[in-house]
Nucleic acid binder design. Structure first.
Length: 286
DNA sequence: TTCCAGGGTAAGC
DNA sequence: GCTTACCATGGA
């Protein structure tokens, strides 16, 4: 096992990993456990000093990949300063400052959000866990002696068949995931090339995949490809926008999407994540 | 029971 | 361009 400590500013580990942008993190007695880039990773944050500690298996001596995943070198203050000073957004930032957008693996991010449609986050986590246990490579052994699995590759998932995927409780999403896995593993779509394209082209390319519409494309663009303007509109965000920005009157989804384009600025997706986390936490506590 | 969940799609206005 | 039914599955 390798260990490393990161001295960070404006970083809230609980808000970051608990805000529904990645589905493989588990919090057990204050310690987060997950898998990133083929490594089993445990993360804690000192409540006083805010120092971040990472323990990983297998060992490494280069930690740049983790700095990238956690976006430690992003100057959060600049991002937050760019937000419009809307009441609800100011409230969200005041409460959750330190929430970061992760920089996830494109395939894992795309695949897990294909599974996310009309599913609660706990159920998405359950489906993803089944998928990893059944088709992922073993990368470590945890403290109980249980295997720790990598997220399955596109090539692997493309080869297992629809019935085996449906068996992971993903229902009607199975054919979509299967088709995407095959499109990517056979080279028809190069995910890494998408990163270099303009936002609109990247978005259109992703939306050609079955089961990938505007929302899921925006999630991948924001959480994996680093397009800070991408603004996923799901049921929670639609609710927040209509309640706080349109006086509670029902607004068509396309109208909401065009509104956020001009309103939230160059880091709109970041603002979206603060709004999303804030209202979800509000609804949990009530 | 009924409603709802980090939606997408195709058919119908 | 916007609305609706349908798609599995399980939690509340």
């Amino acid at each position: 096992m390798s260990s490393h400590e990161f001295v960070v500013e404006d970083f809230d580990l609980d808000a970051t990993l608990g805000s529904g942008q990645a589905f493989r993190w588990q919090r057990v007695s204050g310690r987060w456990s997950g898998v990133v880039g083929g490594h089993w990773l445990r993360l804690t944050q000192d409540p006083e000093t805010r120092v971040l500690r990472a323990d990983i298996v297998p060992e490494v001596d280069d930690w740049r990949w983790l700095r990238t995943y956690l976006q430690l070198d992003c100057r959060l203050a600049d991002v937050l300063d760019s937000f419009p000073k809307d009441a609800v957004l100011v409230e969200a930032v005041g409460k959750w400052r330190g929430l970061r957008l992760l920089r996830q693996d494109p395939w894992e991010c795309l695949a897990t959000f294909i599974l996310s449609s009309t599913k609660q986050i706990v159920q998405i986590q359950q489906i993803v866990m089944l998928l990893c246990e059944r088709f992922g490579e073993v990368i470590a052994t945890d403290d109980d002696g249980s295997p720790v699995y990598a997220f399955p590759t596109a090539a692997r998932l493309g080869s297992v068949g629809e019935a085996a995927l449906r068996d992971c409780k993903m229902g009607f999403r199975a054919p979509n995931l299967l088709a995407c896995a095959r499109t990517i593993s056979d080279g028809s779509l190069d995910l890494e090339a998408i990163r270099k394209r303009p936002l609109n082209e990247a978005r259109e390319a992703l939306m050609r995949l079955p089961g990938v519409g505007p929302k899921i494309a925006d999630c991948a663009l924001l959480f994996a490809f680093g397009f800070a303007e991408a603004f996923p509109v799901d049921v929670w965000i639609a609710r927040v926008l209509t309640n706080y920005y349109f006086n509670g009157k029902p607004v068509a989804l396309p109208v909401l999407r065009s509104f956020v384009l001009g309103h939230f600025g160059p880091h709109a997706g970041y603002a979206q994540q603060y709004l999303f986390h804030h209202i979800r936490m509000l609804s949990k506590s009530s």
